[in-house]
């Protein structure tokens, strides 16, 4: 009985958000810019795009760096003080509360580097947050690639890098993708980091990296706290935005599963 509690909670939350959110969702809601003076006249289009933009910046930062670190740790590094400390610091970074990363983004990216509250600041801060996921996912996935693949490739006269690039990464790809998309799912729902590194009440779509950007989680928070609107309207709009956010998260997860399954189906037979 107790075991079912998490199932019940999950369905309760999702169903509740879904039922309430559906009432607000309309083309206008999805495609108009927010109107903070009269909330019910606006929509959340810039926030949807903004969330995707932030995710893109975040992944552009964290994915190459994470995969490269993973390759280094799994393929090149010998067990020594450097690799041990790299692993230790990856753990550290994973353990840092998101609000602290937000504060760091605020002081370092927004003020010190002068990026201001912007897409770049928010995306990079999110990147710091999910970097440990991408590193670990890559390292773990690469380590599960059978040693015999590497030997076969090297025996054919491939260099180490050729072997990694064309055999190891190809086999590790599903694991890496899954890990990255898990990180992406976390990044898209993250509010605290973005709240501190971007502006709050945004009504436009960013045109450059240094433009301010709105995001769905921040929008939900803002609508419920600072935007002057009637309680009922604010709540219903928050429901709508929550639903869209959950949908985006679900799409990322489904996409992850889809990518992995097609790959596995294509490349592995029933034998062995």
């Amino acid at each position: 009985m107790v075991a079912l509690i998490s199932v019940v909670v999950l369905f309760a939350v999702v169903a509740y958000i879904f039922l309430n959110g559906m009432q607000v969702i309309s083309l206008n809601f999805l495609l108009k810019s927010p109107n903070y003076a009269a909330l019910d006249k606006g929509g959340i289009f810039p926030q949807i795009i903004g969330s995707l933009c932030l995710l893109a910046v975040c992944l552009l930062f964290a994915v190459p760096l994470g995969i490269a670190s993973g390759i280094y740790l799994a393929e090149y590094a010998t067990e020594n003080i450097i690799t041990k400390s790299v692993r230790f610091f990856v753990e550290c970074l994973a353990g840092i509360p998101s609000i602290v990363i937000g504060l760091f983004g605020l002081i370092f990216l927004v003020y010190y580097l002068g990026f201001g509250p912007s897409m770049l600041s928010g995306g990079l801060a999110l990147g710091f947050m999910i970097l440990p996921w991408t590193v670990r996912a890559s390292e773990e996935a690469i380590k599960t690639v059978p040693h015999s693949y590497r030997e076969a490739s090297l025996a054919l006269g491939a260099s180490k890098w050729q072997t990694i690039r064309s055999v190891v990464l190809k086999s590790a790809y599903p694991g890496i993708i899954t890990g990255i998309l898990l990180g992406a799912g976390k990044a898209i729902g993250e509010a605290a980091v973005i709240l501190l590194t971007t502006g709050g009440l945004v009504t436009y779509i960013p045109h450059s990296l240094l433009d301010d950007v709105g995001a769905l989680p921040v929008y939900i928070y803002m609508v419920l706290t600072v935007v002057p609107a009637s309680r009922a309207v604010a709540e219903s709009y928050a429901f709508g935005a929550s639903l869209v956010l959950i949908m985006m998260f679900l799409m990322i997860s489904v996409f992850a599963l889809f990518l992995r399954n097609t790959y596995v189906k294509r490349m592995s037979g029933s034998r062995r």
Partner: peptide, 10 residues
């Protein structure tokens, strides 16, 4: 070189 276990790439 050909190894003990058949090891085609995936």
């Amino acid at each position: 070189m050909v190894f003990q276990q058949p090891n085609p790439f995936p």
